[in-house]
């Protein structure tokens, strides 16, 4: 029953996006169990058979895909499960196939510089700030991915970790800042 409703909700969302919101591309078979909120003028691409979930009975857990500015891109691969994930892009965020993101935040900009003026930070370019998450990556709850991070394939990020640097394929990381741990 719940699956049927989720499929129907995903279908409606896909059709409305195709009709009214040209900047969003959604593949077939989207399942929406919890609210999906896409805000901003940037480009959002969701692959086939994606899953939008959140903890039951908690209305604050929903998926947000925010783009700041028209040049922003969020590109999400096939068979991805977003479990109350918060993705927010000013430049570019790419998520590979078969990934699982649980209650984690991905943010590819600092918004403000660290000096007193709090202006837009200098030296942020698309190449430096791009976040790339590989295939079959699992990101645990309440963890955070900062700008310019590349996570390669088959990585497991433990809950509650803050990732600030490149992570090599096939490793498990945890802690703040994230370091390889035994799994």
């Amino acid at each position: 029953m719940r699956d049927m409703f989720a499929w129907f909700r995903g279908y409606i969302y896909r059709v409305t996006c195709r009709l009214f919101r040209q900047n969003i591309e959604i593949g077939e078979g989207l399942l929406i169990y919890k609210r999906l909120s896409i805000v901003g003028k940037g480009k959002v691409v969701l692959g086939k058979n994606c899953l939008i979930e959140g903890a039951l009975g908690d209305s604050s857990q929903f998926v947000t895909l925010y783009t700041h500015g028209e040049s922003a891109i969020i590109r999400i691969g096939d068979d991805v499960a977003l479990y109350a994930a918060r993705v927010s892009a000013k430049y570019e965020i790419i998520i590979g196939n078969d990934a699982l993101i649980e209650q984690a935040g991905l943010l590819d900009t600092d918004f403000h510089s660290i000096d007193k003026s709090r202006k837009t930070p200098e030296g942020e370019t698309r190449e430096r700030c791009r976040i790339v998450v590989g295939d079959r990556v699992c990101i645990g709850a309440r963890s955070f991915i900062t700008r310019g991070v590349k996570i390669e394939d088959d990585v497991l990020v433990f809950p509650g970790s803050v990732v600030t640097s490149l992570i090599k394929a096939g490793s498990c990381v945890g802690g703040n800042p994230a370091k390889p741990v035994a799994c």
């Binding site: 699982l100 649980e102 079959r136 699992c138 645990g140 309440r142 088959d154």
Partner: peptide, 24 residues
């Protein structure tokens, strides 16, 4: 605070994929 005795809540999903197939 959060108490979670598995690494990923979406368990069935993790078991089917990747190198780290077992959810602790």
């Amino acid at each position: 605070s959060l108490i979670q005795d598995c690494l990923f809540v979406n368990q069935s999903f993790v078991r089917t994929r990747g190198k780290h197939s077992v959810n602790e």
